[in-house]
Amino acid sequence: MRHSKSFYIKNYLNYAIILVVLIVFTVLSLTGSAKLSTLLLLEKIAISVILSVSLCMVVGFLGELSLGHAGFMCAGAFLGGKASALLEPVLGNGILTLVISMLVGGFIAALFGVIIGLPALRLRGDYLAIVTLAFGEIIRSLVMNAPTSWFGGTLGLPTPKFNSKYLFIVAFLMVLACLAVTQNLIRSKHGRAIASIRDNEIAARASGVDVTKYKLFVFTVSAFFAGIAGVLYSYTQTRVQSVNFDYNYSIEILVMVVLGGLGSINGSIIAAVLITFLDVELQTLLPGDLAVLQDLFYALILIVIVIYKNAPGLKSFRERYNLRKLLIGRFAAAADAQSSTDSVSGKEEE
């Protein structure tokens, strides 16, 4: 099967952009011209992107409302963080410790994903949202109330720090991995089966789709990546505290997915980048007493985006200045013009 160039651009442009950003900042970081705060921002953005892309799989493609994503992240952060704290004296504070603890955090979060996936087979919509919300809170309070020697109680678990010059590289590689897995899964026969469950579960069952298998699988994969994001988060902090993983954080991730447009991976990425950027910038822009305004500005910006996305009066404006069309259209037009002069271009097929 041959594809035209525009097909590749449409499907792989996001990898290219992330790679370019990664390379540029790696060079800047190596030459020492990148500020530490910029690198920290990049780490935060990468974590948000992993979280929103993995939640997008559940909310956007499987069509189930999950409010427990921060809970999975919490499980990853504490158990992965504990693993790295235990491994540090043995293996040193290197890449090996980081990778192993990411795997530990990811798999433990995935295990929790299976556990939460089980009720998901019986519950739908609002009821599932309530159960996942409660589940996330349960994980958090379990960690908080565990003996202090396990997870540090309310003070938090002290975790090793990776060289902050390079942590964002690992984070970005995980973004690419998460993106590749999600995107490959969605654009396959399994992805079609998952989307069919979202569109009409009864018809999906009647068409022979194994709903149980796919629901459990999506919850598990999504939790796995949330766990990895959790471990990365634990590395950006000197102490991981369970307060940070309350349901507000789950909702913030959900906001990223919804703002990005349900069922759009690239949308989730863009929304995650923008919201995290805003969050961090507002924190630094508003010093002292003005800090109270942060939430207000944040809310205002969200309201503006939602109105912009949905207001009927702005429809023609939106269509004319559609970011995706402008971006992909321009690349694709240029590439197709070139390829058609080269040879007879391949028919675009999926």
Partner: peptide, 24 residues
Amino acid sequence: RLFGNLTVAENVMVGLGNQIPCSL
């Protein structure tokens, strides 16, 4: 009860199910 957000071809492809093997 169609899968409204999938294309016409994809609807049929969901129906084709596991007739062509390819694991997750």
